[in-house]
Design a protein around this nucleic acid. Structure first.
Lengths: 196, 196
DNA sequence: GTTTGATTTGAACGGGTGTTCAGTTAAGTC
DNA sequence: GACTTAACTGAACACCCGTTCAAATCAAAC
């Protein structure tokens, strides 16, 4: 056989990315083979190369797509027009809500950075920096306005993001707490941590 | 040739563990081959099997050693005799100090859990739970005594640990801040986060 | 100085790796 | 219905994987 019945790039392409995403998240980039991904899709390994130039690009594209989604979703929030405290609350709730919906993407974005070749790493890292800069801006504005009490804006930014992203290590849908409750708990901790 | 001059298990054994630790931390367990580890030590791959039964055990032993060190070091602190606020400050400073000195071990312990076979995973996870339980105990004691204001002890525990461990993602020796300054900044954030 | 035991080599094992590509078949077009 | 193009197979490529083991050599003990 060669081309299979019902085959179409609009179907196979997304299925390949979905399989790669799930497998990379569960086992790690290096531990997943192209044949495993292909097997999950129900296709031979060679067929993957109609959709990606190589394994590295497959990973890099998944990461770039995730970071683009993140920045695009965040860009819809006009936090500059809000008071620092409201802007910070918005950021905390946005971060938790967005990340909780995409556990696989988040896991890959944080765990597989070292698997990226230098050029891809620089690109993804720049996008991440861009996201962090938004939180840092909010913190600086609040500190200048005297509503936040922080020792170091840069470190507070990293500490808050580390704390928030940690949600993904334990949160499971249908668990003890609803998304709203989780957001409220973390917002309480962040608000107090910045002295507001 | 066979046995090489000056070879001795007291020397080769630690060198193998050190090489594995460094390589696993930098590239990840799955991406590192036994031949790479052997090459770093200056030995053939077969020689590694005088020191470990297989690759998986090499990883598991590194992790267990790290967790044992962590728990042993922590056991020297008698936090139960301290007031909750002092106990919490001690925990925060201990965690940062201990983790900052062992970036490779910490990286492996957090990133390679998924590379562990079920039995090894359960063992390491139990040790980690043990460590987290200590912080949770401090938080519960403080909450009952009315000196902490927290919504959920379990989640606060995980949030604080995620925040503290995040130090390892950016801290570099000889950087802008001293260990003492870093500890002070994080202690400030944690103290406020728990409402004290 | 000989013997014993510890340590390493080097080759081999079976199998898996990412990637390429000629050949084949289905889908879409006129 | 003939033709083009899109999609996929299956085999092959060169190489790397973890692990084993007889043979060789060094260190230590007597």
């Amino acid at each position: 056989m060669a081309r299979t019945q019902g085959s179409h790039s609009d179907i196979t392409g997304p299925r390949i990315r979905a399989a790669a995403r799930a497998l990379f998240a569960r086992h790690g980039y290096a531990a997943v083979s192209m044949r495993q991904i292909a097997g999950e899709v129900g296709v031979q390994a060679g067929a993957l190369y109609n959709y990606t130039s190589d394994k590295q690009s497959l990973l890099a594209e998944l990461m770039r797509e995730h970071m683009d989604d993140l920045l695009a979703a965040r860009a819809e929030v006009k936090s500059g027009q809000l008071a620092p405290l409201d802007a910070l609350e918005g950021f905390v709730r946005f971060h938790i809500g967005f990340h909780i919906e995409r556990p696989d993407e988040v896991f890959i974005a944080y765990m597989e950075l070292r698997a990226l070749e230098p050029a891809n790493f620089a690109e993804i890292e720049a996008l991440r920096r861009q996201y962090e800069d938004e939180l840092e801006g909010i913190l600086r504005r609040g500190a200048e306005a005297g509503v936040f009490e922080i020792e170091d804006a840069k470190i507070t930014t990293l500490a808050v993001i580390a704390m928030l992203t940690g949600v993904n290590t334990w949160y499971r849908k249908g668990g003890r707490l609803s998304l709203e409750e989780v957001e409220a708990i973390y917002w309480g901790m962040v608000r107090r941590a910045v002295g507001a």
